[in-house]
Amino acid sequence: QRITLKDYAMRFGQTKTAKDLGVYQSAINKAIHAGRKIFLTINADGSVYAEEVKDGEVKPFPS
């Protein structure tokens, strides 16, 4: 399943989102408010992988 960072954070909370991605909650808040195009893939085992689309390139998040 693929979902935006904002939607994932709204569904699970910023604290869990940060923990799942290995970053601080403040980084999640800042990324959402900056309007960054970050998409999360939720794997069947429950693990989460995030990618950011920037300038036409897709890069892992966090980099």
Rank of each mutant, 00 (worst) to 15 (best):
Q1R: 07
Q1Y: 12
Q1C: 14
Q1A: 11
R2E: 06
R2N: 07
R2S: 09
I3C: 09
I3M: 14
I3D: 03
I3H: 07
T4F: 05
T4H: 09
T4W: 07
L5V: 02
K6D: 08
K6H: 12
D7F: 03
Y8R: 00
Y8C: 02
Y8I: 01
Y8M: 01
Y8K: 00
A9C: 13
A9H: 06
A9W: 09
A9N: 07
M10L: 13
R11M: 15
F12W: 11
F12Q: 04
F12D: 02
G13S: 03
G13L: 02
Q14K: 10
Q14Y: 11
T15R: 12
K16P: 02
K16T: 06
K16Y: 02
T17R: 00
T17S: 04
T17G: 01
A18R: 02
A18H: 02
K19E: 10
L21C: 03
L21A: 02
L21M: 04
L21K: 00
G22A: 05
G22E: 04
G22F: 05
V23A: 06
V23I: 12
V23D: 02
Y24V: 14
Y24I: 12
Q25A: 13
Q25N: 09
S26R: 09
S26V: 10
S26N: 10
A27N: 08
A27R: 06
A27F: 14
I28G: 00
I28V: 10
K30W: 07
K30N: 14
A31P: 01
I32M: 07
I32S: 02
H33N: 15
A34K: 09
A34M: 13
G35W: 04
G35V: 05
R36V: 05
R36S: 08
K37Q: 13
K37W: 06
K37G: 07
F39S: 04
F39A: 03
F39I: 08
L40Q: 00
T41S: 08
I42C: 05
I42D: 02
I42Y: 06
I42L: 09
A44R: 04
A44L: 11
A44F: 09
G46R: 04
G46L: 08
G46C: 06
V48Y: 04
V48E: 00
V48T: 05
Y49K: 10
Y49L: 09
A50C: 04
A50K: 01
A50M: 03
E51L: 07
E51G: 04
E51C: 09
E52A: 02
E52V: 04
E52R: 01
E52H: 03
E52I: 04
V53R: 06
V53H: 11
V53C: 11
D55L: 07
D55M: 08
D55Q: 08
D55H: 10
E57A: 11
E57H: 12
V58A: 10
V58L: 10
K59G: 10
K59F: 15
P60I: 07
F61Y: 13
F61T: 02
P62N: 04
S63I: 09
S63W: 06
